[in-house]
């Protein structure tokens, strides 16, 4: 199991959802640091260490949790950019969205999402899903670095 203290980048514009995701991931019991950005442009700036992140000392994320409906640049565009960038494509990207639309699911996999999760409506179900997600990606999955 791979349990060193990774960074999780959460790309989520909804404050309430962001708090719930952070809580659920914390309850996975696996140590990690979570950084949240609220739109697609900020996500790419963080990953490329540009703009306000130019002097950031944060390591590259071990996991990206990516909402689809985002201001400025939507999640599918962010996904496409990450997975076509030789320096970023080895970071697992898990789409975490309320969209169950078949076109979004198909497009996300076409753009090489590592996984696609639909946020359940009820808090308990969301919490259970995030605990499993945290355990799988932070403790079981082997990262490239």
């Amino acid at each position: 199991m791979d349990k060193d203290n990774p960074l999780v980048l959460l790309v989520e514009d909804n404050d309430g959802h962001a708090q719930l995701v952070a809580l659920g991931m914390r309850d996975s019991g696996i140590d990690h640091e979570l950084i949240r950005v609220s739109d697609g442009t900020q996500a790419l700036e963080f990953l490329h260490k540009k703009g306000k992140y130019e002097s950031s000392q944060q390591p590259r994320p071990g996991l990206i949790l990516l909402d689809l409906r985002l201001p400025k640049m939507d999640g599918l565009e962010v996904l496409k950019e990450v997975k076509s960038d030789e320096l970023l494509k080895d970071i697992p990207v898990v789409v975490l969205t309320t969209s169950e639309a078949e076109k979004d699911i198909a497009k996300a996999y076409e753009f090489h999402a590592n996984s696609y999760l639909v946020k359940p409506m009820h808090f308990d179900e969301l919490s259970s899903m995030l605990q499993e997600t945290g355990f799988y990606w932070l403790a079981c999955n082997k990262r490239a670095y």
Binding site: K89, H112, N114, S115, Y136, K142, Y145
Partner: peptide
Amino acid sequence: TENIRNAYCNYANSCL
């Protein structure tokens, strides 16, 4: 690291 990175760069969904 090389094997794992190579797998991700070829779009493995996950590595165990």
